[in-house]
Design a binder for these strands. Structure first.
Lengths: 306, 306
DNA sequence: TTTTTCAATCAATTTATTCTATTGGTTGAA
DNA sequence: TTCAACCAATAGAATAAATTGATTGAAAAA
């Protein structure tokens, strides 16, 4: 059984004439006759009563089958409609993941921007650890993820979006308030609060200041299951200091009178934020749109704090 | 788009592996790859993300299309089911027509008989004039009709079922009650009641007794829009006499103390009842079953009244 | 690096499809 | 009755397609 055969029998049922039906299907009459004969043999059922004088009659069973054939053809038309809809790469849903230390600061700016550029693209957001995002990406549950380097997975392509320097957040009455900049090694001995294991940002900070890691148990507070925002509030409360990625300071709502931000003395520790997607992901246009828009959100100028 | 292609994409979606999907479809891997590539080009949409390491991902749009493809395939399966059901010729519906002067007497016996012989055959009955039945038959609205000869239409085949003699029905106090038989010409001068135009039985009676026709206006009452049963009641009421086909007397419920039946003296006028169907009608078995059963209902013995 | 895996590609063959021309059967008019 | 018209089925040839085994190319694991 082929869709062509179904189209033929529907045409014959409508025209009640093999020749006219063939014409309507843009084929010759023998083509149509043979196709219908083949279908009738396959089904083991006569669909039409042929007689010479323009008197084609549809069999009882043929009536049912033609009705069903029309249903089938209708459903195939739906396939074309779906693909028509999906032809614009900037439509449908796009599932974007972001690590916890980027999502809350990047997405509020990015999402309205994207809605303007691609109104038909429905964004679905997930925030998670790098490891989980990576797995979801590889399994096809996410279309792209925003992570930070280093990130190297087989089958995954990445593109660097921007580099964000780390900054130090201290209470407004902290001894460092008058400092113009902070050296990395000065963190040692301070009441440094960091995110729990799994957050790549924690590792990046510790990598920037290896001595903090050595003194981990004594001087650095690891806040499991927490977020940068919680830590920020604790800085405001005077519980200690912390290191933040500078984009977490971009939005005014995250600023507080009680917190002062200090940049590091050069060479500033920093991390590179990147977009990652499966190498063979077909909607390259959506990826490109994302890259462009994220970079626009985080222009180099806006990344220099103070 | 072909059904084969739809089967292929569904298989790939299930196996998530081109090679295995090809095996499941009993084709080689290139066959399947090419077919899917062709479909993707036709739809203008990527359905799968291919990557070398066993990582086939279904596109967002591909997911929708595959779902729809499964729907299409399901509906095609229904076509097979329908034809499977319809393979037995003695199933489905059979639309049988009969003229007014046969239907009420033949069908009550025929229908229960047919239900026994072909329980899966649903009978639909229509009673009408010969002309209307003939037209419905030719248009395919009826599968077969029971009429009486003469009946000759192009494209229509007939088979004689039985010959039924005409009889005279008179009131139990009619002067003819003691007669053993009635001569046709004796009808002239009697209060003869006949069906209206359109009923072939009327024509047949008048043909048997042409003199009745001559005296039409004076002595014969034509009862338009009436039925044999109405006329029979009028006979019982003493309004006049009538001629009936003998099968109308077979069933006991049609007999009455007030009506006496007289046979004609030979040569008895009679009519031949026949079955008619389109020459190319495919369910010959159903036709044969009908012929057999009708003839069984109306065995020669049962046709001799008195 | 080498090996393995998997889909895409190639080239050749088989299979389907489609066409024109014709036949066979039926009908209606001469 | 014969003839012409009509219609679907059939035949045979040309064309298009589907299919296959072998190979290639890309990517990842050993």
């Amino acid at each position: 059984m082929t869709l062509t055969e179904l189209r033929y029998i529907v045409a014959v049922a409508q025209k009640k004439h093999f020749g006219q039906a063939a014409q309507a299907c843009f084929v010759s009459q023998p083509t149509l006759s043979i196709a219908i004969k083949k279908l009738e043999q396959e089904l083991g059922v006569k669909l039409f009563e042929r007689s010479s004088k323009n008197e084609i009659h549809i069999t009882d069973i043929g009536q049912k089958i033609i009705q069903q054939a029309q249903k089938v053809l209708q459903e195939t038309r739906v396939i074309n409609e779906i693909s028509q809809q999906g032809k614009e790469p900037l439509s449908g849903t796009f599932k974007l993941g972001a690590i916890y230390t980027i999502g809350p600061y990047l997405l509020p700016d990015l999402i309205p921007d994207l809605r303007k550029k691609a109104p038909n693209l429905t964004l679905i957001i997930e925030e998670n650890f790098t490891a989980n995002l990576s797995q979801s990406l590889k399994q096809g549950e996410l279309d792209a993820i925003v992570i930070s380097y280093p990130f190297d997975e087989p089958g995954i392509e990445t593109f660097p979006l921007y580099e964000e320097p780390f900054v130090v957040a201290v209470h407004s009455r902290h001894e460092w308030v008058s400092k113009t900049s902070v050296k990395v090694n000065e963190l040692v001995g301070q009441d440094l609060m960091l995110l729990g294991a799994g957050h790549c940002f924690r590792d990046q900070v510790l990598q920037a200041c290896p001595k903090c890691m050595v003194d981990n148990n004594e001087l650095t507070r690891t806040l499991e299951g927490s977020s940068l925002e919680t830590i920020r509030h604790m800085v405001a409360a005077g519980t200690g200091i912390t290191v933040l990625p500078c984009t977490s300071m971009l939005n005014s709502q995250h600023n507080s009178e009680l917190i002062k931000i200090k940049t590091f003395t050069k060479p500033q520790p920093s991390r590179t934020v990147a977009l990652a997607w499966r190498k063979h992901y077909p909607r390259k246009e959506a990826i490109q749109l994302l890259i462009n828009n994220i970079q626009q959100c985080c222009l180099p100028g806006t990344l220099s704090i103070k």
